[in-house]
Design a binder for these strands. Structure first.
Length: 866
RNA sequence: GGGCGGUUAGCUCAGUUGGUAGAGCACCGGCUUUACACGCCGGCUGUCAGGGGUUCGAGUCCCUUACCGCCCACCA
C-alpha cells in the first residue's frame, strides 16, 4: 500500500471496540499533536483556504450551526488528505447589536457615551432594576468580557464535534486586528472617494436609535387602516380626497401626488390644496410612481412616511417638514413667524401641540380624533393588512429620519460585481441567481454607520468651530500606523485632551460601523492583510466561502464588494451555500419556536460521528429535516466500521499477491469508486460521496467479508488466505480514509489500532494505489464474476429464507440453474460461494433464468461442528 | 408582481448524458451465525403532483396548471 505509513506498526485490536469517549480522547490528542496546524510555508497553489463564517457568540449555537459547519469540515479534511495545507481559521462575531443587548441585560448597564471612563468600575452581582449608566470604554470592556466566556463554550463544542480548525488562528470581529483592518480599509476607501458622508433621509430604528441598511430590512405583515382625508382646494372650489394609512403624518405633508396620465387629477396639477387641521398650502404634483389604482389615486407625500416619499421628495424638489425625533416621538414645532408657515398659525399650533411628544402610534389615535372633530376624516377607517418595513432585529416599524451617515459607494460597482459573481463557482449553481437578484434590486449606496457603541468606531475626528459647532468638512484623520483608534478616547495629532468638544478644539466621530462593514473583511482579517502580507499572499483569494443562503445579500455581497475595492478580484473561487435545518413540520428551526434541542445533547446522545453523518447527508443548498433517526443510522455505521475493522485486523498477516477473483474484483470496484468519490468531493458534492461510500462499506461487510471469511481463515490454503488478507486490509485502509472526513473519530480510532500517526494526515486514497495490487488496471472480468456470484448468493439466501432455515442449517445439495456464461463465471469463485452460502454440494444446470433449489441437511447435522 | 428551488414508497430522500422505478428508516417474517442482536437474511410498498407535447421509448427534455418553500419587490 502507498498510504505512506509503516507496515510494521504493531496491531492492537480491542476485544470490545466502542464509540464511547472517542470525542474526548481524540479531540485532545489532535490538539496536543497540532494535527490541524496550518503550514504557512506552502505557496498559494499548495493551500486550501476557507473563509469560515464567524458565528454570533451572543446567540446560542443550534443544530443549524452543527449542520453547516460539518459540511465545511468534510471538505477541509478531504483537501488536507489530498495534500493541501488547509487554512481553516475560526472567527467569532461578537460585534454589534446582539452583543450590546445581551450585555445590557446580563450586567444591568446602559451605555452613555458622554461619560468618562471609570477604570475601577465593576458591575453589580445581579442586574438592578435601573440600568447603571457606564462610559463607552467601560461598556466595551463588559462586552469583551462576556463574549470571551461565550467563545470558550463555542470552542469546546466545535472541538467535540471534530471541526479540524487551526485554533491558533482564531479571530473576533471586535478584536484589535478586526478593528484595525476595518478602520484601515475605511480610510483607504475614504481617500479614494468610495466612502462618503451625507445628510439624507435614512431608514431608522426608533428603539435602537440608529440608521439601518437596506440589507437589514425585512417586511412584516401588520394590521393598518386606510383613512380617507379631505384636503380643501386652495381656490375654494372643493376638496381632494386622499387615502392614507399614516394620518399622523399630515403635519409632515409637503405635497399631493397623482399619476401624470390620471384624468381625474390632470386639471389639478400645479394647483394647491390646504392640509386639514394645520392649514398648510401644498402643491399637487404629477409623478409616474403614483398608482391610480391605489386608494383615490392621489397620495400624500410626507417627509418621510416611506421610501417612495423619499423618491418623490427628491425628484420633485420638495421641502422637508420633519416631525419625528430619533426616538420616534413627535418633536415640538413652533408655528408662525420664524417657524412653520400656515394659513392659520394659531389653529395649527393648537392642533399640533396635541401630537408633540407622542409616538407615531399614539399620535395616530389622537389625530383621528382631531380629524373626526373637524369633519376632515370621511367615513370610518377601513382596516387592512399590509407589509411594513422593519429592521430585522427590531420591534417597531422603521421610520425615515434625516441624519448624517457614512455610505460606501455600491451603485456604480453593480455591473462589475455581477461579472465577478460569474467568476465564482457556486455550489449549488442556482444560488448565483440570489446574488444577481439582490444586485439588480439595490436601491442606494450602502449605509455603514450605526449610532451604537459596541462596534468598530469610525477612525476620525472633526474640528470644532469657535462658535462650538462641529465642522464636518474639517476632518482630522489618524495616521494608518496608529490604528486601531477610538476617537472617543484617542486624540487627533496635534491636539490635547482638554480640547475635546471645546470651541476651537475637536470632537470624535460618534458612530460605529455596521457589523457587515467588518464582517465583509473576514478574508482580510483572517489572512492578516497589511500586517502579514506574506501570509495573505498564500491564502488570498481564498478557495471557498461556506455560508447559508439567507445572507447572500449581506455577507456574501459585501465581501465581494470589499474585495473588488481593495484587491480588484473575487474574494474566493467557490461559494458553498448550505441550506437550513428544518423542523419535522418543515419550518425553519429557531430558538424562538421553542426548539430546545441543544447541539451538545445531540452529540452526546448520538455521538459526534453520528450527528456528522446526518449533517453530511444534507446536500449543498438544500434545506434538510432535523432527523435523529439519521443520526442513529450514522452511529450504526460507525459501530459497523469498528466491528468490521476488528474482524479484518484480527488476521492482518501474512499478506500476499491478490490472486483470487473475488479479491481482485472487490479492489477493482473500489478503485472505480475512489475515482468518482474524489472527483465529486473536489466539486463539494460531499453528500453523494457519503451515500455511495456507505453503500460500498455495507456491501463490503455483507457480501465480500462473508465470501472470503473462510478462505481468509486458511481453509483453502496459504495462497488464498494471503490474497484475502491483502484484499481485506487494503480495502479497509481505503474505506477508512474515504470515511475519515465524515466520521473523524471512529476512523481515527481504528487507524490507531494498526497505523502510526493520524488518519487525517494520511494521504487520500487513489485508484492507482488500489489498482497496483491487481496489476495496475481494472479487472472487468473479475468484476463480472463478482456480480454474478453476489446475485447467486442472494438467490440462495432467498431460498434459505423461504424455507425458513437459519444460516447454520447446511445445504446438503444445492442446484443453481442459470445461463451457461454465467455458470462459467460463478464457477471461478465456486469455493468462496459454497462456503459463504454453507453449501456442501453445488450442482449447476443450464437454464435461461436464475433459479435455486436447496436440500437442507437433516436437523441432526446442525450439531456437527463445521 | 419578479426570481429561484421543490412535488418520486407510510417517513426522509437518491435517481448522472432519455432505455424495465431505487436506498435508508418504518413495517412484516425468519435466524443466538466466533467481527457486529447496536447484528444477519428475506419480504411488502409507487397513476414519479395534474394536463399537454417531442420521441420507438419520458421520473428525466419542452409547454402549461396547481400546491409547498425561499429570496426580492409592493407599503399612499
Amino acid at each position: 500500500m502507498s498510504d505512506g505509513v509503516d507496515q510494521s506498526h504493531p496491531i492492537s485490536v480491542p476485544d470490545k471496540p466502542a464509540l464511547e469517549g472517542l470525542e474526548q480522547k481524540w479531540s485532545e490528542r489532535w490538539s496536543h499533536d497540532a494535527v490541524y496546524a496550518f503550514d504557512r510555508t506552502r505557496d498559494r497553489s499548495g493551500v486550501f483556504s476557507i473563509d469560515t463564517p464567524p458565528p454570533t457568540v451572543s446567540g446560542s449555537l443550534h443544530v443549524g450551526h452543527v449542520f453547516s459547519y460539518t459540511h465545511t469540515d468534510v471538505v477541509a479534511r478531504f483537501q488536507r488528505m489530498r495534500g493541501k495545507a488547509v487554512f481553516y481559521p475560526m472567527g467569532w462575531d461578537d460585534n454589534g447589536l446582539p452583543t450590546e443587548r445581551r450585555v445590557q441585560n446580563f450586567f444591568g448597564v446602559r451605555c452613555d457615551a458622554s461619560l468618562p471612563y471609570d477604570p475601577d468600575f465593576t458591575p453589580p452581582e445581579k442586574p438592578g432594576k435601573q440600568p447603571i449608566p457606564v462610559s463607552r470604554p467601560n461598556f466595551i470592556e463588559l462586552c469583551t468580557r462576556l463574549t470571551g466566556e461565550d467563545e470558550k463554550v463555542f470552542e469546546h463544542l466545535w472541538r467535540y464535534l471534530g471541526l479540524s480548525v487551526d485554533w491558533s488562528m482564531t479571530y473576533a470581529t471586535i478584536d484589535r486586528r478586526a478593528q484595525r483592518i476595518s478602520q484601515l480599509s475605511f480610510l483607504r476607501l475614504l481617500g479614494r472617494g468610495l466612502a462618503y458622508q451625507l445628510e439624507a433621509p435614512t431608514l431608522w430604528d426608533v428603539d435602537f436609535r440608529t440608521a439601518v441598511a437596506q440589507a437589514e430590512l425585512e417586511d412584516r405583515e401588520q394590521p393598518g387602516a386606510y383613512h380617507k382625508i379631505r384636503f380643501a382646494r386652495a381656490d375654494g372650489s372643493g376638496f381632494v380626497e386622499v387615502d392614507t394609512t399614516r394620518p399622523e403624518l399630515i403635519p409632515a405633508c409637503v405635497a399631493i401626488v397623482a399619476h401624470p396620465d390620471d384624468p381625474r387629477y390632470q386639471p389639478l396639477f400645479g394647483t394647491e390644496v390646504i392640509t386639514p387641521l394645520f392649514g398648510v398650502r401644498v402643491p399637487i404634483k404629477a409623478h409616474a410612481l403614483a398608482d391610480p389604482e391605489k386608494g383615490t389615486g392621489a397620495a400624500m407625500i410626507c417627509t418621510f412616511g416611506d421610501v417612495t416619499d423619499v423618491v418623490w421628495w427628491r425628484e420633485l424638489g420638495l421641502p422637508v417638514r420633519a416631525v419625528l425625533l430619533p426616538n420616534g416621538a413627535f418633536k415640538p414645532v413652533a408655528w408662525g413667524e420664524g417657524g412653520w408657515q400656515s394659513d392659520d398659525v394659531v389653529r395649527a399650533q393648537v392642533q399640533y401641540d396635541q401630537l408633540a411628544g407622542l409616538s407615531a402610534t399614539k399620535a395616530r389615535v389622537r389625530i383621528v380624533e382631531l380629524l373626526t372633530a373637524s369633519g376632515d376624516l370621511l367615513g370610518e377607517p377601513r382596516p387592512i393588512t399590509h407589509a411594513v418595513k422593519f429592521y430585522e432585529k427590531g420591534d417597531r416599524p422603521l421610520e425615515i429620519i434625516t441624519s448624517r451617515q457614512w455610505f460606501i459607494r455600491t451603485m456604480e460597482t453593480r455591473d462589475r460585481l455581477l461579472e465577478r459573481g460569474r467568476e465564482i463557482q457556486w455550489h449549488p449553481p442556482y444560488m448565483q441567481a440570489r446574488l444577481e437578484n439582490w444586485i439588480h434590486g439595490l436601491a442606494g449606496d450602502w449605509c455603514v454607520s450605526r449610532q451604537r457603541f459596541f462596534g468598530v468606531p469610525f477612525p476620525l475626528w472633526y474640528q470644532v468651530r469657535e462658535d462650538g459647532t462641529v465642522d464636518r468638512e474639517a476632518r482630522l484623520l489618524p495616521d494608518e500606523s496608529r490604528l486601531p483608534i477610538d476617537p472617543s478616547t484617542d486624540l487627533p495629532e496635534g491636539y490635547r485632551a482638554e480640547q475635546r468638544d471645546q470651541p476651537g478644539g475637536f470632537t470624535g466621530d460618534p458612530d460605529v460601523m455596521d457589523t457587515w462593514a467588518t464582517s465583509s473583511l473576514t478574508p482580510q482579517i483572517a489572512g492578516r492583510w497589511e500586517e502579514d502580507d506574506d501570509l495573505f499572499s498564500r491564502i488570498f483569494p481564498m478557495d471557498v466561502r461556506p455560508q447559508a443562503h439567507d445572507i447572500i445579500r449581506t455577507w456574501l455581497f459585501s465581501t465581494m464588494l470589499r474585495a473588488e475595492f481593495q484587491h480588484g478580484s473575487i474574494p474566493w473561487s467557490n461559494a458553498a451555500i448550505s441550506g437550513w435545518v428544518l423542523d419535522p413540520d418543515r419550518k425553519k428551526m429557531s430558538k424562538s419556536k421553542g426548539n430546545v434541542v441543544t447541539p451538545m445533547g445531540l452529540l452526546e446522545e448520538h455521538g459526534s460521528d453520528g450527528v456528522r453523518y446526518w449533517a453530511a447527508s444534507g446536500r449543498p443548498g438544500t434545506d434538510t429535516a432535523f432527523d435523529p433517526a439519521q443520526m442513529k443510522v450514522g452511529r450504526r455505521l460507525s459501530i459497523k466500521l469498528l466491528n468490521a475493522s476488528k474482524f479484518v485486523l484480527t488476521t492482518a498477516s501474512p499478506t500476499g499477491a491478490v490472486t483470487e477473483t473475488v479479491d481482485r474484483a472487490l479492489l477493482s470496484k473500489l478503485a472505480a469508486h475512489v475515482d468518482v468519490a474524489t472527483r465529486e468531493l473536489e466539486e463539494f458534492s460531499y453528500a453523494g460521496v457519503l451515500d455511495t461510500t456507505e453503500k460500498f462499506l455495507w456491501a463490503f461487510c455483507d457480501d465480500y467479508l462473508e465470501l472470503v471469511k473462510a478462505r481468509r481463515n486458511g481453509e483453502f490454503g496459504d495462497t488464498g488466505a494471503a490474497s484475502a488478507i491483502t484484499g481485506l486490509t487494503s480495502s479497509l485502509s481505503v474505506l477508512l480514509r474515504l470515511l475519515a472526513p465524515y466520521l473523524p473519530f471512529v476512523t481515527e480510532e481504528v487507524w490507531s489500532w494498526w497505523r502510526p500517526g493520524s488518519i487525517h494526515l494520511a494521504s487520500w486514497p487513489t485508484s492507482s494505489e488500489v489498482l497496483a495490487l491487481i496489476g495496475g488496471a481494472r479487472d472487468e472480468a473479475a468484476e463480472a464474476v463478482y456480480d454474478d456470484v453476489i446475485e447467486a448468493l442472494a438467490a440462495i439466501r432467498r431460498e434459505r429464507s423461504l424455507q425458513k432455515q437459519g444460516f447454520k442449517a447446511r445445504i446438503a445439495h444445492a442446484k443453481i440453474g442459470w445461463g451457461a456464461e454465467r455458470i462459467a463465471r460463478v464457477r471461478l469463485a465456486e469455493a468462496d460461494l459454497k462456503r459463504a452460502a454453507n453449501i456442501d454440494e453445488l450442482e449447476f444446470v443450464e437454464h435461461e433464468s436464475l433459479f435455486v433449489e436447496a436440500t437442507f441437511a437433516p436437523p441432526l447435522a446442525r450439531e456437527v461442528p463445521a
